[in-house]
């Protein structure tokens, strides 16, 4: 019998190890809408899976079978669910490791990682991993594994969602996490996922609590440095505004900083529509309506004409008491998950 994590091909129909399972072919009925032409290997493997599920059979053999099917169709959610049930059944009967069938949780996690690299868009993989790590109650090595994934796609949404779950579940709001985000942002200052995660670990998790001394200033400086290196990058601007709100610091404190990137009286030197946007708010707040309008006109006409109707809307709000579009007052509450 092929060990469950090997690449050896199994011929389910002739392998004596599978003789006790009765394959169940797919029943499409007479409905042409249901009929699909599959690769013959897939048809055979699926009929054995149906046979296995029909008698609720769990063994290391099932790991090989489900791995085969996942290799042909990684998005098949039924297969993932049954695989997890099998893993739990194996643990219940053999413990965390079984030398005879050579299965272990560690092997499973290695296998999951190799599949994750093959199918980067798949999310069932990450849910499977989450179920396992939650069950094992041990996050050792998991951050390193997600870092490996970031090396090939630093914006993979499923990996980031998993990473946040990991941080919440194991309370990893620590220096290692901050350092990793700094590193990712150094590699790509436009990585919005990393900015979002940084906010999540520094301020977002606090709910209505106040941040520790120095955190607000540290984050303001970090955002400013990032902006200086790429002034037209929206992510650190959004981040900066969020940090100011959290610290109850008025936008007006950014006037000089923004004017560096958008001196509205010397149009040719304007390098950032985002700076212009914030300046229009600052001028509006401080009663300098003429300049506020000038900034919005420049945005509509020259620096962001695709959204000219938005900028015109903003112009209509000038001088009114209506709020300029800004973030919700509410800070997302980070739920502790069990």
């Amino acid at each position: 019998m092929a060990s469950y994590d090997s690449d050896d091909e199994v011929d389910y129909a002739t392998d004596p190890a599978w003789a006790h399972i009765t394959p169940l072919p797919q029943d499409d009925g007479e409905n042409p809408l249901a009929q699909i032409a599959y690769h013959p290997d897939y048809v055979v493997a699926m009929s054995y899976l149906r046979g296995v599920m029909a008698i609720n059979y769990h063994s290391a053999q099932v790991l090989k079978l489900t791995a085969d099917i996942i290799g042909m169709n990684a998005a098949h959610y039924t297969v993932w669910g049954y695989r997890f049930k099998t893993l739990m059944a194996l643990e219940a009967s053999n413990g965390f490791n079984d030398e005879e069938t050579s299965w272990s949780w560690r092997k499973e996690l290695d296998w999951v990682q190799s599949i994750a690299k093959q199918y980067e868009k798949n999310y069932q993989i990450w849910h499977h991993r989450q179920l396992i790590i939650n069950h094992l109650n041990d996050a050792t090595g998991e951050r390193e594994r997600t870092n490996e994934m970031f090396a090939s796609d630093s914006k993979n949404y499923h990996v980031w969602t998993y990473r946040q779950w990991l941080v919440k579940r194991f309370n990893l709001f620590d220096k290692e996490e901050l350092d990793t985000m700094e590193l990712l942002l150094k590699e790509d200052v436009r990585n919005n996922s990393a900015w979002n995660h940084r906010y999540f670990i520094t301020l977002g998790r606090l709910g209505t609590d106040s941040p520790a001394d120095g955190v607000i200033n540290r984050e303001i400086e970090l955002a400013k440095v990032a902006i200086s290196s790429a002034p037209q990058n929206p992510s650190p601007w959004n981040y900066l505004k969020a940090v100011l709100r959290k610290g109850n610091i008025g936008l007006a404190s950014l006037k000089d900083f923004c004017e560096q990137f958008a001196p509205i009286d010397s149009e040719d030197e304007i390098k950032s529509s985002h700076a212009l946007d914030i300046l229009s708010e600052i001028y509006d707040e401080t009663g300098n309506l003429g300049k506020a309008e000038q900034a919005l006109v420049l945005l509509a006409a020259k620096y962001d004409p695709v959204r000219k109707n938005y900028w015109r809307y903003r112009k209509r709000l000038l001088g009114s008491n209506e709020n300029v579009p800004t973030a919700s007052e509410k800070t997302p509450i980070v739920h502790a998950t069990a």
């Binding site: 949404y157 980031w160 969602t161 946040q164 779950w165 919440k168 919005n192 996922s193 979002n196 995660h197 906010y199 999540f200 977002g204 998790r205 959004n238 981040y239 505004k241 969020a242 709100r245 579009p325 973030a327 919700s328 509410k330 800070t331 997302p332 509450i333 980070v334 739920h335």
Partner: peptide
């Protein structure tokens, strides 16, 4: 759903997840 709103105004899959 409201708890999933982020600082940039968008929403993610769970609270704290990036706007998408």
């Amino acid at each position: 759903v409201l708890a999933c709103q982020n600082y940039d105004g968008g929403f993610g899959v769970v609270p704290g997840a990036e706007s998408h």
